[in-house]
């Protein structure tokens, strides 16, 4: 197509640029503002006098002697033991992702290679399960878990998160495996491999892009979860997100919202890094299910 025919009229360019610009501001500003504000004192971040105080740190200068302060971070991480929550989150997220992917690759591979009707129905069932609000499942867990003394432990939560993750993982890996040509593993089987050997030696080496993308989403689900972790873990095993929610209950009384602000920024930082490095995979993952319909 020639360049001239692609050129757009000036007002249209203007409108679409303004729209994109507006969206970028709306998407990014809250994060920048909160990051900046997390280094101020409460009197600046929630300024009664002048919102510009949050920019220059007027009260921060008066209260702490500098325009930036790490008091919020110190309070959250050390005084309120946010490090413990961060550690619990790491453990839970790590094992959830590993186990989800192991189960998911096996199941997704089977679903992609089976032409029978029940494979289709399993996928449909997974879709229905995917739609279940997590809180309804949690209300099913609580009573039995209390009865069997399973409540409050980290392993229980990992297993529950893995299970809740399965429908999505299965769908995604299933569509990735559909893209790997059938001939690959079938020729290995003609050469005398069993199905599992073919999977192990032929499919596993080529499946990593799909697995990594799926892993990212498993990570997000486990990391971002509030419903399951808030209700299934005891105080000592609490993860970051419920911990932040509990900050709100206790700190607003003490006038220390800044602990929560600092904790929020700390919990967002890993996600930032994640998008920075894996933007392409996230985009391809979001569209993988869609393009295939």
């Amino acid at each position: 197509m020639s360049i001239a025919s692609k050129r757009r009229s000036t007002p249209l360019v203007l409108i679409s640029s303004v729209l994109v610009l507006a969206w970028i501001v709306v998407a990014a500003f809250p994060f920048l503002w909160t990051l900046w504000g997390s280094f101020k004192v409460q009197g600046d971040f929630f300024s009664k006098a002048d919102w510009m105080n949050a920019l220059w740190g007027t009260r921060t200068l008066i209260e702490t002697g500098g325009t930036f302060t790490g008091a919020g971070y110190e309070g959250a991480w050390i005084e309120k033991e946010f490090w413990r929550a961060a550690m619990n989150t790491s453990i839970i997220v790590f094992f959830t992702v590993i186990i989800s992917l192991t189960l998911g690759t096996l199941g997704g591979y089977a679903l992609a290679r089976s032409g029978y009707r029940y494979a289709f129905w399993l996928l449909m069932l997974a879709l229905v399960f995917r739609a279940m609000p997590h809180i309804t499942l949690v209300s099913g867990y609580l009573l039995p878990f209390f009865e069997w003394n399973l409540w409050g432990h980290i392993p229980t939560t990992i297993v529950v998160l893995v299970a809740i993750n399965q429908p999505f993982t299965l769908w995604m890996l299933h569509s990735f495996f559909l893209n790997i040509p059938k001939d690959l593993d079938e020729s290995a089987m003609v050469d005398g491999c069993t199905r599992f050997q073919a999977f192990r030696h032929v499919i596993v080496p080529v499946m990593w892009p799909g697995v990594i993308t799926t892993g990212l989403f498993s990570f997000l689900l486990a990391y971002n979860d509030f419903t399951v972790t808030a209700l299934l873990l005891n105080q000592e095993n609490q993860t970051m997100i419920p911990k932040i929610a509990s900050f709100l209950g206790s700190t607003q009384v003490e006038g220390n919202v800044m602990f929560a602000v600092a904790a929020v920024v700390s919990a967002t930082a890993p996600l930032f890094v994640l998008i920075l490095f894996f933007q392409r995979q996230i985009v391809s993952g979001l569209t993988a299910g869609a393009v295939k319909g």
């Binding site: 679903l111 399993l122 279940m132 309804t136 893995v162 299970a163 809740i164 429908p167």
Partner: peptide, 18 residues
Amino acid sequence: FILPSALAMLLFIAFPLV
């Protein structure tokens, strides 16, 4: 192949619904 995954969904999604 499907057993582990199906088992997880059965135990922690289908049973809770029951």
